[in-house]
C-alpha cells in the first residue's frame, strides 16, 4: 500500500490545496452545445503520487484530459503545469515540458515497428532537424543511446520479443503496454493515462498496475482514469471523482469508498451496473 506521506494532512474536500502540486486547474469549462462536458472550479494534482480520476461514463474525464494536454480548447479557465502557464499551450510543447499522455483508444503507430514506436518518443532528437537528418554523424550517438533505452524499456514491459513486429500486429493489451512504454521513453514528469486497463485481460492488468506503481516509485507523478474500484483502492494515493463535468469528491481511497456523492454518482447514473471495461 502506498504511504500516505505528503497527503496525510490534506483534508478530503473538493478543491483542497496540496503541498507542491504539479498541476493546478482553475475554472476550466468546456461545453458541447448545451452540454457542460467539463466544469472544474479548482483542482490541484499532487506531485510524486498516483492520482486516480474516476467517474461514471460520460463524466467528462477524457474531455478534461484533452483540455489539460492541449488537445482541445476550453471555453474558460486556466491551468499551470509545474508552476508554468499551461493553458493555450500546444500539445507538443506540453509534452516536451514533461506532460505525456496516452489515449483511451490506443494510438500505436501501426505501420511502424515496435522499436520505431519507441525511438520516435526520444526527447530532443538532433536528427529530427531537416538539415542535420542528412548528416548522420550529428545524431548517431544520440540514436545509439536511445536505442539502448528503448531496448531496456521494452524488456521491462516484456515486449522485447516483439521489437521488430509492426505495432498493428500487437494484441490490445500489448498495445496498451507499448503506449505506456513509449510514454516513458519521452521522459515525462507527469504521466497521464486514459483508461490504461480498459479491455485488457486480468493477467495483463496486474502487470500494468505494477508498471504504474513503478512510475511513482521512480519519482514521476501519475494521473490516470480508471473505473475499477478494486484497482483504484489498491494503487492510488489520491482519488478525484467527476460526475457531469464537475469534481464531486476528492480524497484518499478510504475517504472515497464511503463518500455518498460518489456512490450516488455511480449507482444513480449507471443503475447499479458494473462500471468496468466500457469502451467509447
Amino acid at each position: 500500500m502506498p504511504a500516505d506521506g505528503p497527503l496525510a494532512d490534506v483534508a478530503a474536500e473538493v478543491g483542497v490545496a496540496k503541498p507542491d502540486p504539479i498541476l493546478v486547474v482553475d475554472g476550466v469549462e468546456r461545453r458541447y452545445g448545451g452540454l457542460m462536458a467539463v466544469d472544474v472550479e479548482h483542482l490541484e494534482v499532487p506531485r510524486g503520487v498516483i492520482t486516480a480520476l474516476i467517474g461514471p461514463n460520460g463524466a467528462g474525464k477524457t474531455t478534461f484530459f484533452n483540455l489539460l494536454c492541449g488537445f482541445d480548447r476550453p471555453d474558460a479557465g486556466r491551468w499551470t503545469f509545474q508552476g508554468q502557464e499551461a493553458s493555450g499551450v500546444k500539445p507538443h510543447v506540453l509534452a516536451r515540458r514533461g506532460m505525456v499522455r496516452t489515449f483511451q483508444l490506443t494510438k500505436t503507430l501501426g505501420r511502424m515497428t515496435v522499436l520505431d514506436n519507441m525511438l520516435l518518443a526520444g526527447k530532443d532528437q538532433a536528427g529530427e532537424a531537416f538539415w542535420r537528418a542528412l548528416v548522420p554523424p550529428t545524431w548517431r550517438d544520440q540514436e545509439a543511446a536511445n536505442l539502448e533505452r528503448a531496448h531496456d524499456l521494452l524488456g521491462r514491459f516484456k515486449l522485447d520479443h516483439l521489437t521488430d513486429e509492426y505495432a498493428a500486429g500487437l494484441s490490445g493489451g500489448q498495445r496498451k503496454l507499448l503506449e505506456m512504454a513509449r510514454a516513458l521513453m519521452a521522459e515525462p514528469t507527469l504521466v497521464m493515462l486514459d483508461e490504461p486497463m480498459a479491455g485488457v485481460n486480468p493477467a495483463l492488468t496486474q502487470s500494468l498496475l505494477g508498471h504504474v506503481t513503478a512510475l511513482r516509485d521512480e519519482g514521476m507523478s501519475v494521473l490516470f482514469v480508471e473505473h475499477d474500484m478494486d484497482v483504484i483502492m489498491t494503487i492510488s494515493d489520491w482519488v478525484v471523482c467527476m460526475a457531469e463535468g464537475r469534481v464531486i469528491a476528492e480524497g484518499r481511497p478510504a475517504d472515497i469508498a464511503g463518500n455518498d456523492a460518489v456512490i450516488e454518482a455511480y449507482l444513480g447514473i449507471d443503475h447499479g451496473g458494473t462500471v468496468t471495461g466500457e469502451i467509447r
Binding site: F71, K90, H92, A95, R96, V100, R111, L120, A183, A186
Partner: peptide, 16 residues
C-alpha cells in the same frame, strides 16, 4: 511516418 500513422500520437510525444 508517425504523422502518416497518427498525428495525435506524434503530438503527444512532443513533435511539432
Amino acid at each position: 511516418r508517425s504523422i502518416r500513422e497518427d498525428e495525435d500520437a506524434a503530438k503527444a510525444l512532443g513533435k511539432n
